[in-house]
Design a protein around this nucleic acid. Structure first.
Lengths: 235, 235
DNA sequence: CATTGTGAAGTGATTCACAGCA
DNA sequence: TGCTGTGAATCACTTCACAATG
């Protein structure tokens, strides 16, 4: 099996999986990590794929297949060692190192992100808060001060910033994105409701609140339509 | 084609598609809507699937197939009428009616959401802001006041609230979710980093900032590893 | 002997490629 | 002629079901 190669035996641990983890699996690894952390907090030391799957909200076959892309970390007849597996997943995601994040656009959302404790707790360090509005520059937010956008180059070079978060209005987002890319940032999380153009080597993930609401509205409408139809049928 | 039925001719407009739009397509409809709005703002009246696809950031075959689930809204040899298609998609999503939203948990994130103009601009009306913290209750935010969580029942019944947004800490989220469901809300947007259990008829969508960052970190790590390998290979 | 790890089958989404139509 | 709409082919992901095994 495995999407690359078909080498069956003799592989060292390093060779075993290490290429081509499906994107859908990658997106679930953080969920498994959170489930494992919860189990660990509850002093659970061993968990079956079924236990873990319940905590993660997926089915157990999927969970086992996902884990099989990382390596062979379970014990047949027993299950998985919670802390060992947790470490392996954290390592796979890259959370054994710290990642520095710049937040650009310190409006309501940018402020909320700057204060969000979930970043720090998972190895993401907010290294700087940038904004273009001269009136905001110098303002203290937590233990950081808002800096002008042009500090970006210096920050990236000195501070090893590797992830940029865009929380500006839509109209400013592409310009900010271009500056991030020019400064050498190759991973961007975009909260602005607009499509960003970037070179191939740059990864963009998008979080769009109004799209999420629209998807909910679509389904809600379908449910309502279903009920209405039922009423008509019945009388 | 079409996942239900196979009736080929004689269908009225109402019968034509109306069942089983693939989930992946549903998730893109808001993107197309935004692209069409942008084109309309630029006074473009007609667009080919290729034009639209560029604005939406997808490939044109996918866009055409997606639109084909809604009906036959294009003209061969010409393209799509921007405003007509925009209306049809808005109608399909359910944006020809207004949707009322309650935001629960008025911390930094809840405040940002309460002030987010992108909601109002797309037919989502923030009907109420709820929090459990007595010190916050009565506080003015925009033109709303923060109310206690227990107002939920009354609000849902009187105000036709149909979407609940959870912006509480993780520990409070399931309790809030249960109250929303008990009050009759069947669409929930969850920002708390936790898995919610809900009955089958309730839709939950999840926005998880730290998961998004972790996915970026995974790919960033892979890129870095690739570079390192290259360096070793070259010398 | 309970549970993993995984081939094989099944399901769903994307892309191709072109017939059909304005 | 140029572009849509869509079967058919492909690709990706999920689920099944069971042999392998600590």
């Amino acid at each position: 099996m495995g999407s690359a190669g078909g080498r069956k035996s003799g592989g060292t641990r390093e060779e075993r999986a290490e290429r081509g983890i499906p994107e859908a699996t990658v997106a679930r690894l953080p969920v498994y990590l959170r489930a494992l952390t919860a189990l660990s907090d509850h002093d659970v030391t061993t968990a079956s794929s079924e236990d873990l799957a319940v905590w993660a909200g997926v089915n157990s076959a999927k969970l086992r297949k996902d884990l099989s892309y990382l390596g062979t970390y379970g014990t047949r007849g027993v299950g998985y060692d919670v802390n060992y597996l947790r470490y392996q997943i954290a390592r796979e995601i890259g959370l054994t190192q710290d990642w520095s994040v710049v937040i650009v656009g310190i409006g309501n959302l940018g402020l909320a992100l700057a204060n969000y404790s979930g970043f720090a707790s998972r190895g993401f360090r907010v290294a700087a808060l940038l904004d273009n509005d001269e009136r905001r520059i110098g303002e203290q937010v937590g233990d950081l001060r808002i800096s002008p956008l042009d500090d970006l180059f210096e920050l990236v070079r000195s501070g090893q910033v590797s992830i940029g978060v865009i929380a500006t209005p839509a109209a400013a987002a592409q310009g900010v994105c271009d500056k991030l890319v020019a400064a050498g940032v190759s991973s961007i999380l975009n909260f602005a409701p607009t499509l960003l153009s970037v070179p191939d080597h740059v990864d963009v993930r998008k979080v769009d609140l109004s799209i999420e609401l629209q998807i909910l509205a679509f389904h809600e409408q379908r449910k309502a339509a279903g009920l209405a139809e039922l009423k008509v049928d019945v009388g």
